[in-house]
């Protein structure tokens, strides 16, 4: 059994007057893939964005409760959100490479964090990150062409490489395959299996098959509440809650 990496306790999230998450508590384990499933608008993405404090960007959003990583409270005043995000990378629903070259997309993070000083260091990080994202062989001859010129699946892997480039311990993925075709999706899933050896991965997904294929643990959200969290096998074969049962058998959602 891996040790607990992220621990969320009694999370409430509000968008203005509207409450989006109700008292969510959940542990996520190191070097595993944890999937968050549930119907649209159930709060799973909101929960994911609590882990790297991406919700801070939204003026009207406020978070109550406690999220800790390796025992450190990430909402503590002493934590700088920039260094938190250096350790908790994120991949978004729609591939969002910067409209710059492939190389620059990856070099950006290490550069602003001062992780590499010489050009050779950066070259190395770029190559390593692309290797880990299984993209290097496809783009090695056109590193200086725009990242936006790649196919959707390649763009998403570029974004994964960009997340990896700053050496995070955790990678959050917010429906990373929702804009991709099945072949590109398969590649990303394969990649996740590789990445989980090194990183803790939390993935939000709409596809129950995907959750079943890639994750070790699965949490089911419904109407802002965490209904059930257990090993993926249990959730899909023998869920403890009727709502989970209804959702995975396709009766609603």
């Amino acid at each position: 059994m891996n040790k607990v990496k992220i621990s969320a306790k009694n999370i409430d999230v509000f968008y203005g007057d509207k409450q989006a998450l109700f008292d969510v508590s959940m542990d996520m384990y190191e070097k595993e893939v944890t999937a968050l499933i549930g119907p649209s608008g159930c709060g799973k993405s909101t929960f994911l964005r609590c882990i790297n404090r991406m919700n801070d960007v939204i003026d009207i959003c406020s978070v109550k409760g406690n999220v800790s990583i390796d025992g450190h409270d990430i909402y503590d005043k002493s934590i700088r959100v920039e260094s938190l995000r250096e350790n908790v990378g994120m991949v978004f629903q729609k591939p969002n490479p910067f409209p710059k070259s492939i190389y620059e997309n990856i070099a950006y993070g290490p550069r602003i964090h001062g992780m590499a000083n010489s050009k050779t260091d950066i070259d190395e990080i770029v190559e390593n990150s692309l290797q880990k994202a299984a993209l290097f062989d496809e783009v090695k001859d056109r590193l200086h062409q725009p990242g936006t010129g790649l196919s959707g699946g390649q763009q998403q892997r570029l974004c994964i490489a960009r997340a990896i480039s700053v050496n995070p311990e955790i990678i959050l993925m917010d429906e990373p395959c929702s804009a991709l075709d099945p072949i590109a999706t398969a590649k990303i899933e394969e990649l996740m299996n590789e990445l989980k050896k090194e990183f803790t991965i939390i993935i939000v997904t709409h596809s129950m098959q995907q959750a079943a294929r890639v994750s070790t643990k699965t949490g089911f959200f419904h109407l802002g509440k965490l209904i059930e969290v257990d090993s993926t096998e249990t959730i899909f074969s023998n869920p403890g809650n009727q709502k989970t049962q209804d959702y995975i058998t396709g009766r609603f959602g």
């Binding site: 250096e86 978004f92 729609k94 602003i112 480039s165």
Partner: peptide, 18 residues
């Protein structure tokens, strides 16, 4: 400018100004 560009930069740990 699409918000995803800002989020992309923030997610790798850029400050808001960066």
């Amino acid at each position: 400018v699409p918000p995803s560009i800002r989020e992309g930069a923030l997610a790798v740990g850029a400050t808001k100004m960066q």
